[in-house]
Structures are given as C-alpha cells and as structure tokens.
Amino acid sequence: MKPMLAHYKANLLELLRLPAYWIPSMVFPTMFFLFFAAPNANHPEAASLLLGSYLVFAVLGVVMFQFGVGIASDRASAWNIFERTLPLPPLAKLAAPILTALTFAAMAGAVLVIAAYLSTPARLEPGAWIRLIPALLAGAVPLALLGLCVGYLASPKAAVPVANLLYLPLSFAGGLWVPPQFLPEFVQHISPFTPTRQWGEAVWSAVNGTTWQAEPFIWLAGFTLLFGAIALWGYHRDQGQRFG
C-alpha cells in the first residue's frame, strides 16, 4: 500500500508540473462545451444531455492519454527499468496510474460541471448523479484498455498522434460533440458501432432518468473483452521483448 501511494503521489506531482499535459485535459472538454454545446443548450434536458456527452469526452481524454501516451513513454524510459528492480509486484505498479487517471478525470469533470451550471440550464437530479458515476466508469474501462493497446503497441513518438487519431474521431462519431441525430448521415451509420456512442447511451440514460437498456452495456462489455485481449497481447509482447 505504501509504495503504491508513493507512486500515486509521484505520478500526480510529475503531471501537475507538466502544464502541457494537464491544461488540455482539464480545459479542452470545457472549452469545447462552451464553444459548441452551450449556445444550443437552451432547455434543461438538452443541456443536461450535452453535459453528459462532454463528461464522457473529458474522461475519454484522460484515460486515452494516461494509459496510451503514459505507458508508451514508460516503455522507452530507463527509469522504468530501475523501477522494475524495486521490490514492487507488477500489479501494485498498475494501481497508481489508475488512481491518477481517476483523479484527473474527477478534476476535469468538476471543471466542466461548474462551467455547464454557470453557462446553461443543465441541472442533474440527485438520482442522476448516482447513476452517472457507474455509467462513466462502465465506459472508462474499455477505453482505458484501448489506451493500453496504444501504449503497448505504438512507439513513444507515435503514441500521441495515434491517441489523437482515436480520441478525436471517436468523440465525434460517438455523438459526444453534437448529438447523434445531428451527425452527418454516413457518420450516423457508423456511430452505433463505436464504443464512445455506447458509452454515451449509458450516460444519457443516467442523465435524463430513463431506464438503462442492456444493449449499451453488452456492447461495452464486448469492447472490454476485445481491447482487453489486444492490450494483454501487447503487454506480453512488450514484456517478452524487454524483460524476457
């Protein structure tokens, strides 16, 4: 526990001293919300749905960069080799970046909620808040695993562009920036097959108080298995190359 918390603290300190990392992940979702969503969010229900979408966008950015770019640069670092010689079990090492990602996701979400409450009529019922957290986590898991796929399969230089190539189109096609019904027609056909759309569906039900359908959760579970298997393969491949 103690070494894990020490790694968590070190991760936070390092990232907080890298404004180029945390400013975009804190500010981008809120900025996008204020530019693209707030002007059209005149009714409480529409505004709340958009808030839900941009919360997904915020969490997506944190997990893609934490696990994608973070792992890719770890793999190239000599410090990572030193860390491997410390008496720390590999699973304990994994816990620290998960806690770090949750922390940054919570901060990015908080900034966004404050901005949305101040600029739009978005308001969530207490029950919606309670359902929102598990809905956000349900999608965070498969997309963190997608981040791990990037982290283990891309070189450190390629990781940032690859993460962006996934993160931005997935956000758009998933209907996170503009609601799915306003997407261009051909994107509407692709949208249901993206993990971000299914994640959005789970979150939108939580936000507007409708019953959860099984479908988005089945999709998210499927993406968890798919990305999990690829990430595991990438992990073993990397471990074999560096530590086999």
Partner: peptide, 17 residues
C-alpha cells in the same frame, strides 16, 4: 529484491521530480 539495490547501466530519472 527487498535486500537488493541496483544501478542499471543507463541512467533514467523522472525529470519532473
């Protein structure tokens, strides 16, 4: 590895710490 200390050949340190 509790009683082991290692200096690898290549120096790597967390630059931000």
């Amino acid at each position: 590895r509790v009683h082991l200390g290692v200096t690898p050949q290549e120096t790597g340190l967390p630059d931000g710490l």
